[in-house]
């Protein structure tokens, strides 16, 4: 395997992972920029999407689930906003935050009750199981291509909707000047409900295609919950473009760091300093550090550029 092949394959893996992250975080950042609500239950909608798709796939197959599951999740999201979040909104941001926090636990327990604590056997459909193309000697699975396609399509659709349609314009206006939009006769609370529902549906869609690529189990929300916040913070709270850049960046950081076996002591050895007698921490390789790098990046961003890469406001 040549270096070029390795770099290309790793890049592909990074972009695939990044695109999935983007699908997850786009809804979160949309909701935040609209409503100023940091939705802790966002990853739970991702989990719901996966479980709904699993359930539907056992009845009528994968394809109907791809459409129906995100819609269901979106409907649930809209209901949560209408009857839960809106009530909590009156008591300020802390109440909202606590509400979504509690909601995440609630949804996990609901999943336990309905589907049990085990992982469920949610599989990739046969027609998507195979090799899409072979890069030098590495196969690239169809399903990964499918995931990329869905995320890119979603990105384009979202962009067109926000910038080229009337609804999008109103959403954008409500983003910065909700009072003015309301004075012009638009129903802002309903827009909020739609945005929350839409954001949840996007997370649900990510769940539908992420659930069978990985594992569908009750812990899946907690597993992605923190990384999604990293994306939103690094990209800049409320910036869709920032979330996109941050997702791809994080995806590539994760995959490339796994690829590197250099350790701190190797780096020092280059300049002739031997760290062999220092604590074993200096011999940790970058591969082992890979899981903490995103969080390190988040902390660094918060220190040096609190509004994120492309954030619109300081918060």
């Amino acid at each position: 395997m040549s270096n070029l092949e390795f770099i290309l394959v790793t890049l592909l893996n990074g972009v695939t992972y990044g695109l999935l992250l983007f699908m997850l975080s786009s809804g979160l950042t949309l909701i935040f920029s609209m409503m100023g609500v940091l939705n802790f239950a966002h990853a739970s909608f991702y989990m719901l999407g996966a479980y709904f798709a699993y359930q539907i796939s056992t009845w009528v197959g994968f394809w109907p689930g791809l459409l129906v599951a995100p819609l269901l999740v979106g409907a649930i999201g809209a209901l949560v906003e209408r009857y839960g979040l809106r009530a909590a909104h009156r008591y300020g941001h802390v109440a909202e935050l606590l509400f979504t926090f509690g909601l995440a636990f609630f949804m996990e327990e609901i999943v336990h009750l309905i589907w049990g604590r085990n992982s469920v056997d949610y599989r990739i459909p046969d027609e998507l199981d195979g090799t899409l193309f072979t890069l030098f000697s590495t196969d690239f699975p169809i399903y990964k291509g499918f995931m990329m396609g869905i995320s890119v399509a979603m990105l384009v659709a979202l962009y067109v909707m926000l910038t080229r349609t009337r609804v999008g314009l109103i959403i954008q206006a409500a983003l910065t000047k909700p009072d003015m939009v309301e004075a012009l006769g638009h129903n802002v609370p309903r827009i909020f409900m739609l945005v929350f529902g839409g954001g949840s549906a996007l997370a649900g869609l990510a769940g539908v295609i992420g659930g069978n690529a990985f594992v569908t189990e009750p812990g899946m929300a907690a597993a992605v919950g923190s990384i999604v916040f990293v994306v939103v913070v690094v990209g800049g709270l409320g910036s869709l473009g920032g979330a996109f850049v941050a997702s791809i960046l994080l995806g590539c950081i994760q995959t490339f760091s796994i690829a590197m076996t250099v350790s701190l002591s190797d780096i020092f050895a280059l300049v002739g300093i031997s760290l062999d007698k220092t604590p074993s921490i200096s011999r940790l390789t970058i591969t082992q550090l890979a899981p903490i790098l995103p969080y390190l990046l988040m902390v660094a961003i918060l220190i040096f550029r609190p509004r994120g890469l492309m954030g619109a406001r300081e918060s």
């Binding site: 092949e5 390795f6 695939t16 990964k144 994760q254 995959t255 490339f256 796994i258 690829a259 591969t287």
Partner: peptide, 9 residues
Amino acid sequence: APYVAKIKA
């Protein structure tokens, strides 16, 4: 996938 890419490389 990243680990597998590394094994392959």
